[in-house]
Structures are given as C-alpha cells and as structure tokens.
C-alpha cells in the first residue's frame, strides 16, 4: 500500500477508488464516507449498491466513478444481491473455478433502503451469516427522491413528507435504531461510524472486513441539501452529532459494547440542531424533549457497555482475547 508521509492520510490508501467527476451535491457527507471506506478496504472488494443518491451520482452510463467491481440491481435488495455474490465466490473458489483469495463483499445502501424497503432483505442476509459487510449510509431521509421522511428521520425534522404545519412539528416518530436491531441479530460485528472521525472509521471498516461472517456498519452521512445546512459544515456536523449524543459512536464486537466517543457530559443539542434548517421550526420545549430522550438513550448505551465490560473481564481471564480499542473521554472539538 502506497502511503503518504504526512500525518492524517498516513493510514489511508493513497489510491482513489471513487473517482472525481461524480455528480454528488456540494459538501456531500455520503461521498466523504464512501471515499474513506473504499480506502480502508482496498481494491479486493465487490460492491453492491442499492438504488439511491450514491448509485445515481456515480453511474451515469457510459460513465462510472467506481474503480472497483460494482453492481446495482434495485432499491430494496442490496443485501440479497450481496448474499448471492458472496455465495458465488465461496462456491467457485471451492470448486476450483476461481483462485482462493480474500475478497470483501460489501453492500451499501441509504437509510430508506436499509431501515424501510430493504429491511427484510437485510435481516435475512444477516441471519444467514454471509461473510459480508453491510453499510448503511444514513442521511436520515429519502434524499434522492427529494427529501421525504424515512423511519430513520429524527424526531422533529422537517422533510417534504413530514412538513411542520399547524398540526405538525415535523417528523412525528423517533428514529429507528438500526444498529441495535442488527446487534440483536447476534452478528459478529456492528458499529456506528462517521467520516468526521476518519481514524475511527478506517479501524471499524477494517474490523468489519476482518471478522468472519456478517458485519453491519451504520454511517452518519450528513446531507447539506436535505438538512438545510451550509456545505462547509458537513464534517463539523458529524462531530456535533457524536458529541451531543444524537449519533453515538460505538461498536458491538461479538456482543461486547464499546462506546468509542463518550464526551462525559453531552454537548448541548442546540449546537447540533441550530445549524440545520430542518429543525428551525422547533420550539425550546421540543428541544428539551429531544435532549431528554437523547440523554436517556446514551445512558442506556453506557449501561450496555458497562454490563458487557464486566462480562468481558470475566471472559478475558479465560480466553485472553483483547477488547477493541476504547477511546475514553474525548476532548470536545473547538470549532
């Protein structure tokens, strides 16, 4: 692997697997995530892309932004297509039709393609135990079709199908907790990640590739177009989401919970919501309600981490298996 000598990109593959010239919006967080993820995996991969922004802006025939083998089939079935790809490689290698080699089969899909329409296919693929990595690029609404709400849209957010009005505060429901649902599938590895934390992201992607069996990665993909936020704030918003506890960075490695970024006291929610137009209509009491629930959820997560840490200490005495690296108290970003 060809590396740079400078300090931040040191851990990244210098090769670009997602070419410039793609048609993503200005400041697209999903694209930053894709670039980093591909660099973390490297060239030995096959990517299955669900219908959505990333599929559309990357593959206008006869052009492609991809430097890796890539397939798109439909909206709701990337997990099933990836199942087929994985099973094919396994069989063809076993039968000697292809040389044996480590190829990462990865599916990427948006939050609608994951939490809503593709939920069944995802659950099936995880349950069957295919050796694949499923990545949800969560921009919290159907951005490709024009910012309609999904079950992953956060409470209170304005979308084109959850507009605030005389009788409405925007999205009425709480964001579906996909990482926890995946953890409940008892798959080897589940993690939340954000391209605002490239070191954490790269480490988790590599871990997901390395574990035997299915891994689920849930990425917060900031969307300036849909969130009504300044394009330059994309990366900062990712940090604010983590620091405010709205999008906790954690991983569940073989059932063991680790919070990778626990700021101790969560950052005030208004820091995060304030720079997004989609929350502009919310009143102070709405923010209070959201903040309470975010806090409670974070506390629940801490509880899980403590509980599994106890189990882990017992276990480690027996097996000697090290736990994933834990970042303790992270300094709050100054910006």
């Amino acid at each position: 692997m060809e590396n740079f000598n400078v300090f931040v990109p040191r851990l990244l593959d210098a090769r670009e697997y997602f070419s410039a010239g793609h048609r993503a919006c200005q400041g697209c967080g999903e694209t930053v995530a894709i670039r980093q993820i591909l660099k973390a995996v490297g060239r030995n991969m096959i990517l299955v892309n669900a219908t959505g922004c990333s599929e559309i802006f990357s593959s206008p025939f006869p052009q492609t932004a991809w430097h890796i083998p890539w397939i798109h089939v439909a909206f709701e079935n990337s997990a099933a297509v990836a199942s087929g790809v994985e099973a094919a490689l396994k069989t063809l290698e076993r039968k000697g039709r292809l040389p044996k080699r480590e190829i990462c089969v990865m599916a990427i899909a948006g939050d609608g393609a994951t939490a809503d329409i593709g939920f069944q296919a995802l659950s099936g693929a995880m349950e069957r135990g295919h050796n694949m990595v499923y990545v949800c690029l969560d921009n919290e609404a159907y951005m490709n079709t024009g910012i309609q709400r999904s079950s992953s849209t956060p409470f209170g957010a304005m979308t084109t199908t959850s507009p605030p009005g005389r009788l409405s505060k925007g999205q009425k429901t709480w964001k579906k907790n996909l990482p926890e649902i995946m953890a409940a599938h008892d798959i080897p590895y589940v993690a939340t990640l954000s391209p605002s934390y490239p070191f954490d992201l790269v480490r988790k992607v590599k871990r997901a590739v390395e574990v035997e069996g299915p891994a689920y990665l849930h990425v917060l993909a900031v969307c300036p177009t849909g969130w009504r936020s300044p394009t330059a704030e994309t990366i900062r918003l990712g940090r604010l989401a983590a620091e405010s506890g709205v999008f906790p960075l954690y991983e569940v490695d073989h059932g063991r919970y680790t919070i990778n970024l626990d700021p101790g006291e969560l950052r005030p929610l208004k820091d995060y919501l304030g720079i997004q137009g989609r929350f502009r209509h919310l009143k102070p009491e709405d923010l209070e309600y959201i903040e309470e629930r975010v806090q409670a959820n974070f506390e629940k997560l801490r509880g899980k981490a403590r509980m599994t840490a106890r189990e882990d200490r017992k276990d480690r005495k027996k097996t000697g298996r090290p736990r994933p690296r834990q970042v303790k108290k992270a300094a709050r970003s100054k910006k």
């Binding site: 400078v6 300090f7 931040v8 990109p9 070419s19 400041g27 694209t31 930053v32 670039r35 994309t234």
Partner: peptide, 11 residues
C-alpha cells in the same frame, strides 16, 4: 495535516 484531502467529497 492532510485533513483537506481526507474530507474532500469530490476527490
């Protein structure tokens, strides 16, 4: 630092 390179959405 290379942060600009890492965070550029458009390569």
């Amino acid at each position: 630092c290379g942060l600009c390179y890492v965070y550029c959405p458009d390569a």
